[in-house]
Amino acid sequence: MKQAICDYHQDEEHHWVAELVCGHFQHVRHKPPFINRPWVISKSGRQGMLGQLLKCKKCDEGAPKDIP
């Protein structure tokens, strides 16, 4: 199921995590050539992706919301 990005935070290793409207969190990494998300690197890039949809595997699995 696709869910919109509503915010971001960094985990304890300083990796960016998207917060989705469904209440789940999803890491959004830029690790070319396997994961190409250059927008993650800059604040303006992340802000530009607010509202964009990401596939939420946790919703598909019926997982409870993540706790901030």
Rank of each mutant, 00 (worst) to 15 (best):
W16R: 04
I41G: 01
G23K: 08
G48Q: 08
V17Q: 08
R46P: 14
W39P: 14
K2V: 12
A63T: 13
L20M: 15
V17W: 03
Q10N: 07
K31N: 06
P64M: 08
G48I: 10
V17P: 13
S44F: 00
H30K: 02
G23P: 09
P64Q: 11
E19W: 02
H9N: 08
I67T: 01
E12I: 02
H30C: 07
Q26H: 06
H30S: 12
V40I: 13
K65S: 11
K2T: 13
G51M: 06
K2Q: 15
D66R: 02
E12H: 13
C6E: 12
H15P: 03
W16S: 06
D7F: 01
Q10R: 10
I35D: 06
F25G: 11
K65M: 13
P38E: 02
K2L: 05
P68Y: 01
Q47A: 12
P64V: 07
P38S: 04
C56G: 10
V28R: 00
D66L: 03
Y8K: 05
K43F: 09
E13Q: 05
Q52D: 03
K58T: 07
K43T: 15
A18N: 11
G23A: 04
S44N: 04
Q26E: 12
V40C: 15
A63D: 13
K65W: 02
R37I: 03
C6F: 05
D7W: 05
G45V: 12
Q10S: 06
W39K: 03
G23I: 00
P68K: 05
W39Y: 14
A63W: 06
I35C: 10
K43V: 15
V40A: 14
I67P: 01
H27S: 11
H30L: 02
G45S: 13
L50Y: 00
E13N: 13
E61G: 02
C6I: 15
G45M: 00
I41P: 01
S42A: 00
A4V: 09
D11S: 07
L53S: 01
N36Y: 03
E13G: 04
C56R: 05
R37Y: 03
K2C: 03
V17E: 11
I5T: 14
